[in-house]
Amino acid sequence: MKALLVIDYTVDFVTGKLPVGQPALDIEERIAALTEEFVECGDYVVMAVDVHEENDPDHPETKLFPPHNIRGTEGRDLYGRLREVYENNKNRIEWMDKTRYSAFHETGLDEELKKRGIRELHLAGVCTDICVLHTAVDAYNKGYSLVIHRGAAASFNAAGHAWALEHFAGTLGAEITD
Rank of each mutant, 00 (worst) to 15 (best):
M47T: 02
A32S: 15
Y44E: 13
P60S: 01
P66I: 14
I27E: 03
Y44V: 08
D12P: 09
R76L: 00
H59G: 00
R30M: 11
L34C: 10
D50I: 04
V46Q: 05
T62C: 02
Y9T: 06
D77R: 05
I27L: 08
Y9H: 06
A24W: 05
R30W: 03
A24T: 06
E40F: 00
F38G: 09
T73N: 13
V46E: 09
T62Q: 01
I31T: 07
D26E: 15
K17L: 12
N55A: 11
N55M: 07
N55F: 06
P23Y: 10
Q22M: 12
P66Y: 14
P67C: 13
D58T: 04
I70L: 15
D56W: 00
D8G: 04
F65M: 14
V46A: 07
G16Y: 03
H59L: 03
K17Y: 05
V20T: 09
I7L: 13
F65H: 11
M47I: 06
D12E: 12
V51K: 02
V20K: 05
V11R: 00
E29K: 15
H52P: 04
E36A: 14
D12H: 07
D56T: 00
P23S: 13
H52M: 07
E40M: 09
V39D: 00
V46M: 08
R76F: 01
P60L: 01
E54R: 15
D26T: 12
G16D: 05
E28I: 01
G21C: 12
T73W: 11
E74F: 10
V49E: 00
E28Y: 05
N69A: 08
